[in-house]
Nucleic acid binder design. Structure first.
Lengths: 129, 129
DNA sequence: ATAAGAAATAGTAATCATTATTATTATCAA
DNA sequence: TTGATAATAATAATGATTACTATTTCTTAT
């Protein structure tokens, strides 16, 4: 019904997200898109992130504190370092196995899943050694 | 250093949580513990939930909207219904498989994981039929 | 049992992330 | 070019959570 109308701000948000692999928050996105659109408002950032999420163009990652966003939508999981709190990607094989196994134990219909790993990232690991 | 001191409010929060399997929010806990302690404040509920989480006595589940809490700490996963938003438990076999497979693709050290499933719960599924 | 010291509380204010409101501007189709 | 309406900037409002503070409760040593 409500036809989507082009906006330069939305394009900028999307292309910024495509350039990043560290899953920035709405506020980080706001700070960066401001370089191109100095008067953009935080509300515009939030509204467009919600729009893009609904359209499946980006993924919203709900964690402690502020939500994070990712324009790389191919299935993958996230690792969160307990030391530096970096959010890193993990492309695991056999992702389907997880749904299949869980479905055996569950009476509803499982349509998907997200896995979140925690531990120490490579950098923090080497600092400990 | 700071010695933990007994409190009846904290015990009440813990035992309420042990009686429930639906992962209530801080506000729901507050409403229920008020039956025993009419003057308890929401801040007390939050502070004790944080304490219990730090002690590993309960688990905090960060989802869209308010956080949810679970006093049943044996390893298990959660299913969130996309229709009614119920949070249900799934006890999956082969949980270790997930860490092992992911570790093959990751250079840091994976210490654990959480899986969140989504789809339709049994009740919402039958309403659709 | 009692008093001193420290942690916990109730009540409230403050913060943070996010959403809603509104007058103005930008996009699009005729 | 114009008219309709989606999108915007600026700002207010909301919801969840945390911080603050004077008072109360718990603990431990007397």
């Amino acid at each position: 019904m409500t036809a989507l109308k082009y906006s330069r701000q939305r394009e900028s948000i999307k292309s910024f997200l495509l350039s990043r692999y560290d899953h920035p928050t709405a506020d980080t996105i706001y700070m960066n898109v401001r370089k191109e659109f100095p008067n953009i408002s935080l509300g515009t950032v939030y509204r467009n992130l919600a729009l893009l999420t609904d359209m499946g163009k980006i993924i919203k990652i709900t964690t402690e504190g502020a939500d994070r966003f990712d324009a790389h939508v191919e299935p993958h999981s996230h690792f969160i370092c307990r030391e530096c709190h970096a959010v890193l990607d993990i492309h695991m094989k056999n992702e389907d196995f997880i749904n299949t196994e869980a479905q055996k134990e569950f009476s509803g219909q499982i349509e998907g899943h997200t896995v979140r790993y925690f531990g120490l990232c490579k950098d923090c690991l080497s600092k400990k050694a």
